[in-house]
Design a protein around this nucleic acid. Structure first.
Length: 409
RNA sequence: GUGGAUGUAGCUCAGUUGGUUAGAGCCCCGGCUUGUGGAGCCGGCUGUCGUGGGUUCGAGUCCCAUCAUCCACCCCA
């Protein structure tokens, strides 16, 4: 219907029965994360804007796409566009690092980015993610990937592809970018139009190009692998051997990079093979220097974030059928107190009811009860009648008999 | 941010080269019938044709603007 008010662009309501699917998916996420000893963290929707600008990078798109404003006291605030920076902030601010040398957190939360909406890309969207602080060892990278892998399986998402790479430290990346830019500039005349445009702003993206004419140039481009330290190389090989041990298929992609400034070392991405343009379901990696950079102790970390809406587009998970145990008909107000007493008793005993407060006539209530998959209908009038809608048996009962009769059915 | 497409009932859609009171199916509500039971039959409700201008004797239909959605680029989860 035409409404006086409408929702903000890029936002959406989640209505039943879809909310049920969300609940089920969230339950799976909670269970799986907790199975691996991760604990949930919740952070505020709003943060000071510099938390993001200074840590995900001023020049990144995510930073530019923030919903930000100045509040009444002149503070610069923003709705959170990503979760890692807030989680790290909370981790440091709470002193958690003292209590838990190995600290494992997960979240399910709404994030906000002022992008142009399209399928799989909203302005308010939901991510879940995990962050493991305190271990620099390759086993931690592998555990994170294992959890992501298990979650995708548990959520009945098939046709995914894990790409993995090691990108070294931020300094090495800067060096690499200079070399790469030089290389592409030497071959600029052979590059596609799109890639020429990227040359200045984002040369690393050229490596991702799908244009045919770019392929041979990309093939011979210098790889970041050639620049990373020996330790990083050893670490990366360890991660790969853990994945082999786990039987997790991966695709080593020397061109894979991340869009946020804080990553280093292992990076990975899970994409779907279906033809969606927004095919990145999950992205993550190491960020060993972020905690210290944000004023905390020297603590290494690794984590990932996954887009829930995108996963739902891929998930074969179906909402389980909801059903009602007892449909309640109590149409005469003079029996209301008796009716409520009964309702209270059977709900206290765990039964799921539907009370037709609209007071349709009994005939239509029966139809309604069947349509809504009720097991039985309780008709409260001068007498109390309970009818099992599966066996079609009905009994006239006293108030005290109702529970024992329900239990028998 | 750039480009393209689309907006008619709660949903899915019809609506002829512009021509009277704008339609169907599903959903919802009610009645009849079938043993008060998922079917069948009958009836009922719902629309500023996204919004605002313009052209015209006349606009759901043509033009402009605007908003929203979808698709692609870009980027990302």
């Amino acid at each position: 219907m035409k409404s006086k008010y409408q929702k903000i662009k890029g936002t959406f309501d989640i209505l039943p029965p879809e909310t049920q699917l969300w609940q089920e998916i969230e339950t799976i996420i909670h269970q799986t994360c907790q199975q691996f000893g991760f604990e949930e963290i919740r952070t505020p929707a709003v943060e000071f804007v510099n938390l993001f600008q200074e840590n995900i990078g001023y020049e990144t798109d995510v930073s530019k796409e923030m919903f930000g404003w100045q509040d009444q006291s002149g503070k610069q605030l923003a709705l959170k566009p990503e979760m890692t920076a807030p989680v790290v902030r909370a981790y440091i601010e709470s002193g958690f690092f003292r209590k838990h040398p190995l600290c494992r957190l997960y979240y399910i939360d709404s994030l906000f980015r002022r992008e142009k909406p399209q399928k799989g890309r909203q302005r308010q969207f939901n991510q879940f993610g995990i962050e493991a602080f305190g271990s620099r060892n390759s086993e931690q990278d592998a555990e994170i990937i294992l959890i992501a892998n298990k979650l995708f399986k548990d959520l009945k998402i098939n046709n995914t592809r894990l790409s993995i790479n090691s990108i070294g430290s931020p300094e090495i990346r800067t060096k690499y970018e200079v070399v790469l830019k030089k290389y592409f500039n030497q071959n600029a005349n052979k590059l596609s139009k799109v890639s020429k445009k990227r040359l200045e702003k984002n040369p690393i993206r050229i490596l991702d190009s799908k244009e045919k004419e770019d392929q041979s140039i990309i093939k011979n481009a210098p790889l970041i692998k050639e620049f990373i330290s020996k330790d990083d190389g050893v670490h990366f090989n360890e991660v790969l051997s853990h994945l082999k041990a786990l039987g997790i298929q991966y695709n080593e992609n020397p061109h894979l990079v991340r869009g946020l400034d804080y990553y280093n070392g292992t990076t990975f991405e899970i994409t779907t093979n279906s033809q969606q343009s927004q095919n990145a379901l999950c992205g993550g990696g190491r960020y060993d220097f972020l905690v210290e950079k944000m004023g905390g102790p020297k603590v290494p970390a690794v984590g990932f974030a996954a887009g829930i809406e995108r996963m739902m587009l891929e998930s074969k998970q179906q909402p389980t059928n909801k059903s009602i145990d007892v449909y309640i008909s109590c149409n005469d107000i003079k029996h209301a107190s008796k009716g409520f007493k009964i309702i209270k008793e059977i709900t206290d005993n765990g039964y799921k009811i539907f009370f037709d407060t609209n007071k349709k006539n009994v005939k239509n209530q029966i139809k309604d009860a069947i349509k809504n998959k009720a097991s039985s209908i309780l008709i409260i009038d001068d007498k109390i009648l309970i009818r099992n809608l599966n066996s079609k048996k009905e009994n006239i009962v006293s108030e005290s008999q109702i529970l024992s009769l329900l239990k028998k059915q």
